[in-house]
Design a protein around this nucleic acid. Structure first.
Lengths: 343, 343
DNA sequence: CTGAAAGCGCTTACAG
DNA sequence: CTGAAAGCGCTTACAG
């Protein structure tokens, strides 16, 4: 089988294939990268050698030699709930079909951790980077630009941002949900939003619902707007606090589905009928929204589509050297069970 | 700043640092890998050069040259619900603290996809691999062994398996849940399990609950055991079917929390009180279990601990050349709201 | 159409 | 303690 004396490594290399096929490594390389340049007969020889040796190229070595990266990075706030999972999964599938690996890491909603993750991924040779949202210390984007790495942000689209963005208008989506809530007759609203620090999605969603109610003549008092970490327990606590401060609210706008689930759970625990006594709305439309009882009325987002578009934008940037262009994604309100009509 | 003429690449390399520090690349390399071998003064020179140039090592090139991998792979059935997310997240954190990147990919519960993912990760140079469970076509493990890649399986621990496993005994856990159910007075049970094809967790859980009820004199008729994909909708459909076949059941053992959530949701939709009229149990104790109303009685697993142990086992194997040793993890029953006492 | 050779960014015996 | 040189597994002008 092995006619060239002892091999030290267990790994089958290009060189091994070249020896077996009695051609140069350049030719074997061309088999993978420029097959048209080879004679049919040569192709067959190489093919046979690859087959019998069970050769698989070392993609890192290829990336190093060709200066064409084989990995991209996605940095998301959390992997532990489904908010980003579906989009990232779609992104990964799209890229894998093109032989690019997506490295996904999380920040726990901490912009310092995010910065560390950026450096780590760059050190690991990612050719492009997707980040979530636009709010973060300037040094992070500076670092990425300095290293000349194509990037985009996602899950947010802000006219005022200079980042390439594949996202949606969180302000407008929250505003629209506000109109829906108003249409149902609600006038007295509470808000349980995510922490707005370095989080433009949380910020814009709170701004959107606030602006909407203000525009319609029902400005939301500051004490009815709560910020909380993204854990169901935190949201449950926030619900208690909100009801203490303003027992008169008839509806609670939550910054995402996880917060809505926590609030719903606590309300039901306290014997409050949803939506009979209090309505609750979510945001994101993750799988959870349809498992809850009643199902969540929430903002639907095109998670998979957004992931694929981000993948494509980065791919074109890294492989075809195109600039990453922004793309605004649509959203819509999904009316389900937790938003009731008043009187 | 740059005294050595024009640079083509934008990337700062070891060579650049060596030039700036007026030492050889070997010395700069030693700064990272064998600092003790350097004079304090040399260290300072190199440090300064690194600082001013903003140098970060290319970890792939390092891995190539040192034959020490910088990445590990985790292949899990799905990233879209939280079943594996917490464990993998813990694994990733543990490895990152040691400068190893974890590449996570999913199989959609398809063992052919899993095989493809193994090849892909190996091509991308992972030094070790974690797979979920022990049931899969033989070629997958053969491929891994042929390539001499350390691996372990997780989320399952079977005495009869020859794989290195960092997992728990699914059979015993299901059996224990069965005892708990019996203790509550239930005798007529239905089962909604996951698809058992190439899935030892699903298989062992069904076996465990079946054995338990049989041992206690209440064997479960075949038609009261349903297998279904892991989507809440599938589970909802399964509940309907189960209730059609056997309206007399007082409790439903579900193969995991997502299935339990789907069954719970459908039951409540049909106006069935849980646990008043029907009890439901889950498995895994993911975050979801505590958001549902009532909260799920389920099997608690040490997700984070299991992830960290898998990380450590693989790390020791890859870096210190130790064999991967199996480890059986504990489990426990979490009594919450969905399992009621019969009369 | 194909090969010899240089090079991608590192590490590591081997000398001194 | 430090450097010159070979090598990790690939790709790609450059010749022919």
């Amino acid at each position: 089988m092995d006619t060239d004396g002892p091999k030290k490594s267990t790994r089958v290399t290009l060189q091994d294939v070249a020896n077996a096929a009695r051609v140069s490594t350049a030719t074997v390389s061309r088999y993978f990268n420029n097959r048209d340049a080879l004679r049919p007969e040569t192709i067959r020889q190489v093919e046979r050698a690859i087959e019998t040796l069970g050769y698989y190229p070392d993609l890192n070595a290829r990336a190093l030699a060709s200066r064409r990266p084989s990995t991209l990075g996605a940095i998301i706030p959390t992997t532990e709930n489904a908010i980003f999972a579906e989009g990232v999964e779609a992104m990964q599938s799209w890229l894998m079909a093109r032989d690019i690996m997506l490295m996904t890491v999380s920040t726990r909603y901490d912009s310092e951790v995010e910065f560390e993750q950026v450096r780590r991924l760059v050190a690991h040779g990612v050719g492009g980077l997707m980040l979530i949202g636009n709010a973060r210390p300037a040094k992070t984007i500076e670092f990425i630009r300095t290293h000349n790495i194509p990037f985009c942000t996602a899950w947010s689209f802000q006219a005022e941002s200079t980042n390439p963005q594949i996202g949606f208008n969180n302000f407008a989506a929250a505003y629209k949900m506000g109109e829906q809530i108003l249409k149902k007759g609600h006038r007295t609203i509470g808000v349980i939003g995510g922490l707005t620090q370095d989080n433009d999605r949380a910020t814009d969603r709170i701004k959107g619902i606030s602006q909407c109610f203000a525009d319609h003549g029902f400005p939301i008092p500051q004490e009815r707007i709560l910020e909380t970490p993204y854990q169901p327990e935190d949201s449950a606590t926030a619900l208690d606090e909100l009801l203490r401060r303003a027992p008169e609210v008839t509806v609670i706008f939550c910054g995402n589905d996880v917060l809505a689930a926590g609030a719903l759970h606590r309300a039901q625990d306290r014997g409050i009928d949803v939506p009979g006594q209090i309505s609750i709305t979510g945001f994101d439309d993750i799988g959870l929204a349809k498992i809850l009882q009643p199902q969540l009325t929430t903002v639907h987002l095109p998670h998979r589509f957004m992931g694929e578009m981000a993948a494509q934008a980065l791919y074109d940037a890294v492989i075809h050297n195109e600039p990453v262009k922004s793309l605004e994604m649509p959203f819509s309100i999904r009316e389900r069970g937790t938003l009731g009509t008043l009187e």
